[in-house]
Amino acid sequence: MTDTADGSYVSARRATRLSTLLPILLVATYFTASFILRLLRGGDLASDEAQQVAFSHALQLGYGDQPPLYNWLFYCFGKVFGVSVDTLAFLKNATLLVSCIFLGLAARKVARGRDTAWISVLGLLSLPAIFLLSQRDLTHSVGAFAAVAFFLYVLARMAERPSVGNYALLGAAAGMGFLAKYNFAIIPVATVIALLLEPGLRRLVLTWRLAVTIAVGLVVAGPHVYWVVSHLDTATGDTLTKMRAATSNEAPSQLRAAWQLLASIVKCSALTLAVFAVVYRGHIRTIFAATSEWTRVIGRMLVISMILVFVIMLAVDATLMRPKWISIFFVAFPLYLAFKVDAAGVHVPGAIGKLTVLVGALIFVFLGVVFAASFH
């Protein structure tokens, strides 16, 4: 090997190490900083945090209009570490970190490439629900983000090795997702439809093992489902009231619902898409023209989920949709973008470094904004 070849090889190795080290450093620094700044903000609790503290003294099947998984997690952490702002902040940031880990693992299961995994993780951090809403006052949705990421990882794992154990694990993931956020129930339905529409993956649905998934999911979520049926007004009343917000607009309710949903979709995805477009400018047409089994499956899951959300809005006569209510579905959006890049075979030198810098600047600026706003 010539000196020139040796130098090129060493440079390539260094670039690879750097593209791995930078995102790891960003993720570790960001969640550490988020934890510390929440402690510095003091003991004034936001509404969701106050609810966690209020419900932390007893372990129950249900607590109100939100499912209980995050309450159970905080109850356990509170018993071990005490009920405090420290525990609230640690659990939230640890849960968000878990979301990043499982989404990256899902990408690695399908594409195997480090770049694909980091695109999905950095893309997740660029979602407004993660870097802004979560730092303000989300709790149950934070648990749901982790549940969606875990579900996607298990789905990819099951596709690779469709064993009874993996089908059972998918059922457990689906059950936990429902216990994290009620609208998670849409995701398994969208997944089944998306897989049935993909000939190469249809076999994952058309098998007796799916009964194992359903059975395990019912076992995990069943006790709380019984509680919901027994306390239906408590579990759903407040949410439906918010979605049926009064409005002076004389437009048909169906049109208002469609507009609200479309606006929320844009708010959930536009910033991530813009960051992605900056890094991969010049290759956008190639990337979005590329397709694979998994780009089609994830893309269909997103579209079907939004269609089902719209159908539910029409069914309950909802005229309001806030971005945070559909934010859990967009955990899959960075994974979709990562699979698109992988399918296109596009290799932009330094892309992960650029993505890390852009996302890092974005999330730390808004972390500072949230911190400063807490004193006003």
Rank of each mutant, 00 (worst) to 15 (best):
D115Y: 03
R112D: 09
V370I: 14
I186Q: 00
T116A: 15
K267Y: 11
H224C: 13
A257F: 08
P68K: 08
L132G: 02
P67Y: 01
D65W: 02
K267R: 12
G78N: 02
M313S: 03
A270Y: 03
V80T: 10
D342F: 09
M158H: 03
A315K: 14
P223D: 12
A338N: 02
P188F: 08
G123D: 04
S19F: 12
R281N: 12
F366K: 05
A111C: 04
V331Y: 09
I284P: 00
M313Y: 02
V189P: 10
L261Q: 13
Y70P: 00
I265Y: 10
A185V: 12
G217C: 12
L152H: 05
A129N: 07
V219N: 06
I193P: 08
F333G: 06
L155T: 12
F184I: 05
L355R: 05
L302P: 09
V154S: 01
L195I: 07
F150M: 11
T191V: 10
I287Q: 01
A174E: 00
A180L: 15
I307Q: 06
G62L: 07
L103F: 06
L69H: 04
V331P: 09
R202D: 04
I326A: 04
D3I: 12
S19M: 14
A194F: 02
G62K: 09
F276S: 02
A147P: 04
H283A: 12
S120E: 02
R108L: 07
Y153R: 07
L314R: 06
V266S: 11
A185K: 05
S84Q: 06
I304D: 00
H231V: 10
L337P: 03
R41A: 10
A289T: 06
V316E: 15
V53A: 02
F371P: 01
A235D: 06
V164W: 08
A111K: 01
P334N: 11
R256D: 03
K340W: 02
S230N: 11
V27Q: 04
A15I: 08
V348W: 03
S269V: 09
D3S: 10
Y30C: 11
P23T: 05
L201N: 08
F35K: 01
G360S: 13
I24H: 13
D137C: 07
L125E: 01
P23G: 03
T29C: 12
T247W: 08
N93S: 08
R322H: 01
G217D: 12
F35Y: 15
E250T: 15
R157T: 15
T95Y: 05
V83P: 00
F364R: 09
L169H: 07
K354A: 09
I287P: 00
L262D: 11
A15P: 07
E250H: 14
S126F: 15
G350V: 08
I326V: 15
F184S: 03
E160L: 11
